[in-house]
């Protein structure tokens, strides 16, 4: 029964209909959280006693950095599901995630660099976290380049899945090696939720923004996946019907 449910969910047509209904809700929730996060982050949270107001870019930078890692893992997991069970929808989700992940990585790099300017006095230092993000960006670009280079999109999706899996094994190693190489950076401050070392007034907007980013990813990946599904299924009956009725 579970198997049945799984395959029904994974049928492109079913996915197309369900996701079409989900997207507006996700988008609305994302906007609400985003506005709340911005309000608490820019208005309510007090200025930092050392960094003044410039630390507020953290409310973009940190969630973006989290998302960059998170999406890579999602991509690898979806890719693995596609490879093992031959579920085309998982392939679609994996490849639709890649460029969103790359954008978040790029955003984390840019905001990190802007944040660093007043602190370090230059736009770029080889700080461990930024360096890891840079390498992660290269990994994403590799995935996207490989996908675009292979003509047959099914083959491309499967190749990308392998690459994402290889990448996901390597990310912790890369992360560790870069930290090891440069131990200058300040340790992660938010992972210990039970006794947060940052003040609650800053933690709340940070978490709000993190959830807003998650929802943003959710609805954008669904939108991209819908396009991809339509393109892949364009010679099937239900897509033709859809095109005629609109």
């Amino acid at each position: 029964m579970f198997n049945n449910f799984f395959h029904k969910m994974a049928s492109p047509r079913y996915f197309y209909n369900i996701s079409g209904q989900l997207i507006p809700w996700l988008a609305a929730a994302c906007m609400a959280l985003f506005l709340a996060g911005l309000y608490y982050g820019l208005v309510k949270a007090p200025p930092d006693y050392q960094q003044g107001d410039s630390y507020r870019i953290m409310f973009i930078h940190v969630p973006a950095a989290w998302m960059s890692m998170f999406i890579y893992v999602v991509m690898a997991v979806a890719g693995a599901i596609g490879l093992i069970w031959h579920i085309k929808l998982a392939e679609v989700m994996a490849i639709s995630s890649a460029s969103i992940g790359a954008s978040f990585t790029f955003l984390a790099l840019v905001t990190g660099s802007i944040w660093g300017k007043p602190m370090w006095g230059t736009w770029w230092v080889w700080d461990a976290r930024l360096t890891s993000e840079l390498i992660l960006l290269f990994l994403y670009l590799g995935v996207i380049a490989l996908y675009n280079a292979i003509d047959d999109k099914r083959t491309a999706a499967r190749a990308v899945a392998i690459l994402a899996l290889v990448g996901v094994v390597n990310i912790p190693i890369i992360h560790y090696s870069v930290e090891w190489w440069n131990t200058l950076h300040q340790g992660p401050t938010v992972t210990k939720l039970d006794k947060p070392s940052i003040h609650l007034s800053m933690l709340i907007p940070l978490l709000l923004m993190a959830f807003a980013f998650k929802l943003y990813y959710a609805f954008v990946v669904l939108m991209r996946a819908r396009c991809e599904v339509l393109e892949r299924e364009r010679h099937t009956g239900w897509v033709r019907e859809l095109a005629e009725t609109k």
């Binding site: 290269f138 380049a145 280079a149 690459l163 390597n170 190693i173 890369i174 560790y176 090696s177 190489w181």
Partner: peptide, 20 residues
């Protein structure tokens, strides 16, 4: 044109080895 993509795929994975 596998060569260009190959370097993009492989070089980031060489980073830990290079560092150590």
């Amino acid at each position: 044109k596998g060569g260009m993509i190959l370097s993009l795929l492989v070089l980031p994975l060489y980073v830990p080895l290079l560092i150590f």
